[in-house]
């Protein structure tokens, strides 16, 4: 269909143009903004490729979190990119050109675009995931059954990675708990009223939507990762509009730290429970021996919950450490 192709070409053109602009511009604020556009465009491309769950992740992470974390990093460093001397950029160009050439050369071995008998299409695992998963797992969204059940091990690894990353950032930036005495004058609330009112109105819906994404992941696009980020985005919006202290007193660090670990423990705990029940690690069928599908449902629900809890806590902690650090420095 030519219409679809036209859309794809236009989207990729926007993507390339954004990439070039990012490479050209030295003001890092502008670069952070443009990377927001890059993320929005990628989400559109994922949508066009029918990769709804990936698009969902890109949407949730790219729209809120990435920009906020980029800006947080800018606040701690400098806002203008350092010029690289020409002499040093030549070797970099050579490396990039060589890598590009190697990739183009390697792409010769790829199956032709959209071909029906490519390895992905013919491999038995595709059949298993797309056809058999309906009766084995009974979850309409195949992505969820692959992510949480067939590939439960990998996903456990991903959760541990997020947890570890959060710990590493906390170690580098401090707990965000120390801050000097602030001399904030009495707030001039009236000029901020619009933003405050709208944020107050919006935040409950963001949190509600996070819950929907968390528990609707079996049926539609979504799941623990996306829900966690959306939930954290709600708290971050609160912190941005009402101040870090207000957010900290509502969602304190001393709650978040154990919470981040709890998610991992819930996930791992399900695995240990299935071991105890005589199955292998994360073999959800053991959770309800009479009705494997029910066991799978329960297992996926718990595991996704674990993912959601860890991601929420980790994202909020990341934001707190960046924001708290900025306060102390100024």
């Amino acid at each position: 269909m030519t219409g679809w192709m036209l859309i794809d070409i236009a989207l990729f053109a926007i993507l390339v143009a954004t990439g070039i602009a990012i490479a050209q511009i030295r003001q890092l604020f502008a670069v952070a903004m443009l990377s927001g556009i890059f993320s929005l465009t990628s989400a559109c491309i994922f949508v066009m490729q029918d990769a709804v769950d990936v698009a969902f992740t890109e949407a949730a992470v790219g729209a809120g979190m990435t920009t906020v974390l980029f800006l947080g990093a800018l606040a701690l460093t400098r806002t203008r990119e350092k010029e690289t001397p020409r002499t040093r950029s030549l070797p970099a160009l050579l490396v990039a050109a060589a890598t590009g050439a190697a990739l183009v050369y390697a792409s010769q071995d790829l199956p032709a675009f959209g071909i029906a008998d490519s390895p992905v299409q013919t491999h038995p695992v595709t059949e298993r995931y797309l056809v058999t998963s309906a009766e084995e797992i009974g979850v309409p969204n195949v992505v969820t059954s692959v992510l949480a059940s067939y590939r439960g091990y990998d996903t456990f690894g991903e959760v541990v990675v997020i947890f570890t990353a959060a710990i590493a950032v906390l170690m580098l930036l401090g707990h965000g708990a120390t801050r000097g005495v602030e001399e904030v004058p009495p707030p001039m609330r009236d000029r901020q009223r619009v933003l405050r009112v709208v944020a107050k109105l919006l935040i409950p819906y963001i949190l509600l939507f996070g819950l929907y994404v968390q528990f609707h992941g079996d049926y539609g696009p979504g799941g623990g990762f996306q829900a966690g980020v959306i939930f954290a985005a709600g708290v971050i919006l609160y912190a941005l509009v009402f101040g870090l202290d207000a957010a900290r007193s509502g969602v304190p660090m001393r709650v978040l730290r154990p919470l981040a670990a709890t998610g991992v423990v819930v996930y791992g705990g399900v695995g240990v429970a299935t071991l105890m029940l005589g199955g292998s690690f994360l073999d959800y069928n053991r959770l309800a021996p009479d009705d494997p599908a029910a066991g799978q449902h329960l297992g996926i629900l718990l595991v996704e919950l674990g993912v959601g809890i860890t991601v929420t806590a980790a994202m909020i902690m990341l934001f707190y450490s960046f924001a708290g650090r900025g306060v102390r420095r100024s």
């Binding site: 952070a32 941005l240 101040g243 924001a323 708290g324």
Partner: peptide, 18 residues
């Protein structure tokens, strides 16, 4: 909101009426 906040205050910490 985040970029407005940062470009105005240089940090995220203060409340919007900061």
């Amino acid at each position: 909101v985040a970029v407005l906040k940062l470009s105005h205050y240089g940090e995220f910490g203060a409340s919007a009426t900061g």
